[in-house]
Every structure is written in C-alpha cells, then in structure tokens.
Simulated scan of single mutants.
Amino acid sequence: MNKVTARQRLILQTLLDHLAAHGAGLTVRELGARVGLSSSSSTSHQLHRLEKGRLLTRSGKEWTTATLTSSAIKLLARAPGA
C-alpha cells in the first residue's frame, strides 16, 4: 500500500493496541466507535482497503480475526508522514 491516511493509521494503531492488550480483535462497530467512524459500512470499507494493501490479514471471515502484517507494524514504527 503506497499511501496510508491518518484515519487508516489510527485504525491500525487501535487494532495493534487492542490485540496486544486482549489477544483478540474488535468488532467493526467497536473499532468504528474507537476511531470516530459512526458507520459500520465506512469502517468496513477502511478495513477492506487495509487488507487489499496487505497491511491486515484475517484468519477467518470476521474482522475480529484480523491481525496486522509485518508491513503494518513497520509502518506504525515510522513517524507519520515519514
């Protein structure tokens, strides 16, 4: 994925923090609420874009099985805009 928006970066960071603390992912609605998206459709759209950009992967059909790829973790380690 070439360019990650600030919102997508927030989604990745929120998922990483939640996975580290709880070992399981968030539902689409829970994630949307945490990052300020009121629509589960818009949250799902962002997740699909991150998955297509190979920053997220899922082990099942549900988004609660999503994990960050090594590319996403490297991206988060860099300063925003770097």
Rank of each mutant, 00 (worst) to 15 (best):
Met1Arg: 14
Met1Leu: 15
Asn2Thr: 15
Asn2Met: 11
Lys3Gln: 15
Thr5Ala: 05
Gln8Cys: 05
Gln8Val: 06
Leu10Arg: 13
Ile11Leu: 10
Ile11Val: 08
Leu12Thr: 06
Leu15Ala: 00
Leu16Arg: 08
Asp17His: 10
Asp17Glu: 13
Ala20Ser: 13
Ala21Pro: 03
Ala21Asn: 08
Gly23Ala: 12
Gly23Asp: 10
Gly23Ser: 09
Gly23Pro: 09
Ala24Gly: 01
Gly25Pro: 04
Leu26Asp: 00
Leu26Gly: 00
Leu26Tyr: 05
Leu26Phe: 04
Thr27Asn: 06
Thr27Tyr: 04
Leu31Asn: 00
Leu31Pro: 02
Leu31Cys: 13
Leu31Ile: 04
Ala33Met: 01
Val35Thr: 10
Gly36His: 02
Gly36Asp: 15
Gly36Phe: 02
Leu37Trp: 00
Ser41Val: 10
Ser41Glu: 15
Ser42Thr: 10
Gln46Leu: 13
Leu47Arg: 05
Glu51Trp: 11
Leu56Ile: 11
Thr57Leu: 07
Thr57Pro: 07
Thr57Tyr: 10
Arg58Gln: 10
Ser59Ile: 07
Ser59Thr: 13
Gly60Asn: 04
Lys61Glu: 14
Lys61Cys: 05
Glu62Gly: 03
Glu62Met: 03
Glu62Pro: 07
Trp63Ala: 02
Thr64Asn: 01
Thr65Leu: 00
Thr65Glu: 01
Ala66Phe: 03
Thr67Asp: 01
Thr67Gly: 02
Leu68Met: 02
Thr69Pro: 12
Ser71Pro: 11
Ala77Tyr: 07
Ala79Thr: 15
Ala79Ser: 13
Pro80Lys: 05
Pro80Arg: 11
Ala82Ser: 09
